[in-house]
């Protein structure tokens, strides 16, 4: 019985394992479809845990949808530019591998988030201040993003070795992606759900521009 369970788990986690170990030419990332499944399920899982702070099932569901949405839509918006940048840099032939590298990194972020979810849940159980819950998630996302960077660096290593211009392509991707993802996260608020506010998919008046808000805040401080 134990060995059956073990083999089922091993089969299910083979993709996750390949994703996390990455690196080298021989260790190919999982195929597109399975990569997508691993990424989406990782995001859904963390999102559900993230949204359970107020113990409102609806908020947990919304947050579960929002995390894959955040990463997925931001990626789609930036891909046309990534293609053009690669082509202009003369890296068009490597484009499928570069996209693979980026999607593997996104998948790694999702899987690492899922791995951190139990810690978030434990923190939720021991924190009663909403602000601290927000900060805890900030730390989790930071850790996952750093793990994503490690995965990206690994997948990009053979590409950069073949053509150092891939460094520039990666930098262009990261700049645009971070710029878009920050705004995407702002638009999709709330992720955690302040228990003192009613549950909604979008916070009322949530649309707006993160950068304009930050500029106003800074200007208010000066």
């Amino acid at each position: 019985m134990g060995s059956v369970l073990e083999s089922v788990l091993a089969a299910g986690f083979a993709d996750v394992d390949a994703l996390l170990r990455g690196g080298g030419d021989e260790a190919e990332p999982p195929p597109w479809k399975r990569l997508l499944i691993a990424s989406v399920s990782g995001g859904l899982f963390y999102g559900a845990v993230m949204g359970s702070y107020g113990l409102a099932p609806l908020q947990a569901l919304y947050s579960a949808l929002k995390v894959p949405l955040l990463v997925g839509v931001a990626t789609l918006l930036c891909l046309p530019n990534f293609y053009t940048v690669n082509a202009v840099l003369g890296l068009r032939a490597d484009f499928p591998r570069a996209v693979r590298a980026i999607l593997s990194a996104q998948g790694t972020v999702a899987v690492v988030l899922a791995g951190l979810a139990p810690i978030t849940a434990l923190l939720y159980a021991s924190l009663s201040v909403y602000g601290l819950a927000v900060a805890a998630n900030g730390v989790m996302f930071l850790i996952a993003a750093l793990a994503g960077q490690v995965a990206l660096a690994r997948r990009y290593r053979p590409l950069i070795a073949a053509n150092p211009r891939h460094r520039l392509g990666r930098a262009a991707w990261l700049t645009l992606y971070i710029f878009v993802a920050i705004q995407m996260a702002w638009v999709l608020r709330p992720f955690i759900g302040d228990p003192s506010l009613p549950t909604r998919f979008f916070r009322s008046g949530a649309w707006g521009n993160a950068y304009v808000e930050v500029a106003r805040l800074l200007w208010g401080l000066v």
């Binding site: 930036c78 530019n81 053009t84 940048v85 645009l176 878009v180 649309w207 707006g208």
Partner: peptide
């Protein structure tokens, strides 16, 4: 071509931004 590839990003910011100067 590069400008057009920025199009989706411009579209997304247009959806969520009120600020004309931005």
């Amino acid at each position: 071509a590069l400008l057009a590839s920025f199009g989706p990003v411009t579209g997304f910011f247009t959806l969520s931004t009120e600020s004309y100067p931005f």
